[in-house]
Amino acid sequence: MTNIGVIISMVFIFGGLLAIMIYSLRGKDIDRRIIFLFVFISVATSVIFNVEFKEYPTVIVKKVFDKIESLPPGSKVLISFDFDPAMKPEVFPMANAFVRHCLVKGHKIYLMTIWATGQALMNETVETVIKEEFPDAVYGEDYVTLGFKAGGVGVLNVIITDFRKMYPTDEHGTSLDSIPLFAEVKSAKDLDLVLPIGGGQPGPKEWILFIGDPGDVPIAPGLAAVVAPLIYPYYPKQAIGLLGGVKGAAEYESLLRQVYPQFQDVPAPALRMMGPQTMAHIVIMAFIVIGNITYFRSRRRGAE
């Protein structure tokens, strides 16, 4: 049934594209709503019929994975949820994959956010990933949630010297001094790795500027696609690797599945999104090609 559905939708999409090409070559304009419709159909059918593709990890993503792999168990890793529900489809899978990877390796994770909207999403990760998949993980010993603090880069400026000045307590009001995970952590400089996830301001760039560079702390950001090209120049010196958009997240999820077969059955939303994503990209590329062919043809006609 699924296969038949996929075939029918493919025929419809590519047949339609061909028809549009012929139509536009005759010098007629295409209403922009037709483009929206094609993108919608390609995404919707791929979502409904669950079209999936195999992912091959790129070096830049593998470096992040290898870094977490190579840290000795018990290393201190901070994950910052600096995003809002609008960015969630892209970057939330990264956060969950990072949490899974760190916990399966036995690292200690510190969860925080400098975006108010990140707090609810951070708690969602705690409830759906940590508590459900790692029931043995103990709060305060294996993971801790610091929650949200207002102040943007001001927060980063303080935690680079002292966590306790900005966070006297964790999210639940427990003093940091009574949390075992903070026994050896005074400032962000004591962390072994920081994984800021987001795409706005303050976000991963500020983590590099205010924590990574001055504190000599390795940073591996997970980025919303829009800002990924802006963070690339910091790789490999100031950011050890990075995950760009849903593609980066999907590569990470596939790596996690390859190395840890126990994650075969846990949800991999980014991998699932890559099917519709790829189909939409094909349609958009087809429109770009059609547009260019028509443009050059009309220009040549104009020249004649």
């Binding site: 489809p89 696609a225 090209p229 958009g245 999104m273 519709p276 994503q277 990209h281």
Partner: peptide, 21 residues
């Protein structure tokens, strides 16, 4: 940058359609 933005926007669309469907 444009390509990445398209990818980002499509991801949001996929997220919304997954919610609807």
């Amino acid at each position: 940058s444009f390509g990445y933005t398209v990818m980002g926007r499509i991801s949001l669309l996929v997220g919304r359609l997954t919610f609807l469907l």
